[in-house]
Amino acid sequence: MGTPLGDFVRVKRDSIQPQALGLPDHGRRRSPGLRRVDLAARAGISVEYLTRMEQGRDRNPSVAVVNALADALSLDPAERNHLRYLAKITGGECSAHTRPAPARRDVRPGVLETLRLLEPGIALVTNRLGDILASTSAFEAVMGGSGLFDADAPNLTRYVFTDSRSRSFFADWDEVADEQAFDLWLGPGIETSEWLTAELAPVAGPEFTRRLNRHVVPQRGVLRLHHPSGCELRLLRETLDLSSDAQHLVVFLPADEATAEAVDRLRDRSRGRLRAIS
């Protein structure tokens, strides 16, 4: 049985063509990408050790080995951070007695006050499962008609993978789906595993499980929305990590003047108050 760390290293190795690293092409091979022997040589480790790591039989690589693999795979900064993170959780930080507490659904008063001060901006608080815990009225106005708030406990991950309306609402649905699947790795724990196994995976289908196991680090560019009102919104995102709560405060900023004007019109139609869903 593999591990998140081993899966990520294998996926990255399979995605790299030898020529991209200045290595000779050895012709037809049973698997695509970089051979284990080439990666092991670049990282300064044995092929046997790399094999054990990819297969999940070695779960405790040293910091030096992790950094050497990052160099050998030519990972970008975001991918390097993800590799280090996977090494930590694979090495036992999420063992039975050290698993993180369940994803909390309550939002601290100080965070709610911060959200209130962001009005009339577009912002929300979400946890690592994608639950929307609180939002400004502007966020609800922007998401109006998408179907996201139809559920009593709206969840962005579930919406993206199980509600057909999300595919037309998000202009770049594939990129958004990659982001939501990847974010589930940011706080693994027993409640995440149970939620995936019992609730999400059975209804989300292969589109979800394929993305979850690819470990593609998303770029998080401009978020493009096809709003039901007929306008296209282009939004930039700034994320504040509330690590002690395993939550995120996300602020959306208009990427151009046309979006700013469209958001103003949507806000005028739906004037409301801060919403604390939890």
Rank of each mutant, 00 (worst) to 15 (best):
I122R: 08
A20Y: 07
I89A: 01
V142T: 05
G44T: 01
V65P: 02
D38F: 00
T126H: 09
A64D: 10
T157S: 10
N60F: 04
I16R: 03
Q55R: 12
R128Q: 06
A153T: 15
A134M: 05
A138K: 02
G147C: 01
N81E: 15
A123T: 02
S31F: 09
R29Q: 12
R158S: 11
V125L: 03
G33S: 12
P77Y: 09
L69H: 01
R29P: 06
E113I: 13
M53C: 12
A87P: 09
A78L: 12
R80Y: 02
M53N: 07
N127P: 02
L34D: 08
G91P: 00
D58M: 02
D25K: 14
R30N: 00
N81L: 13
D58K: 07
Y85I: 11
V37Q: 14
G22A: 06
A141Q: 03
L21A: 09
D38A: 11
D71K: 15
L21N: 13
F139H: 13
L83C: 12
L39T: 01
A153F: 12
L129W: 08
H97W: 11
D76A: 14
A41H: 03
A151V: 04
R59S: 04
L118C: 14
P120D: 08
I132V: 15
S137Y: 03
E119Q: 15
P32E: 14
V66P: 07
G33A: 13
A68V: 03
E54R: 14
V65E: 04
T90D: 09
R59C: 06
K88R: 15
D106M: 10
G121E: 02
P77G: 14
A72L: 10
L73G: 04
R116A: 15
Q17H: 15
E93L: 13
R158F: 03
V66K: 15
G92D: 07
P61I: 05
E48R: 15
A20H: 13
L39G: 00
D58L: 03
V47Y: 00
P24S: 10
G22D: 05
R104M: 08
L133M: 04
G110K: 10
M53S: 10
V125Y: 00
L133R: 01
R30L: 01
R52N: 00
L73W: 02
E113N: 15
G22R: 06
E54V: 12
A103K: 08
T98H: 12
V65N: 06
D131A: 05
G144P: 00
A43M: 07
R52L: 03
A64S: 13
L115V: 10
R108D: 13
A41L: 03
V125C: 00
R108G: 12
V37G: 07
E119F: 05
G110Y: 10
E119P: 01
G121Y: 02
G130Y: 02
F139R: 04
H82Q: 08
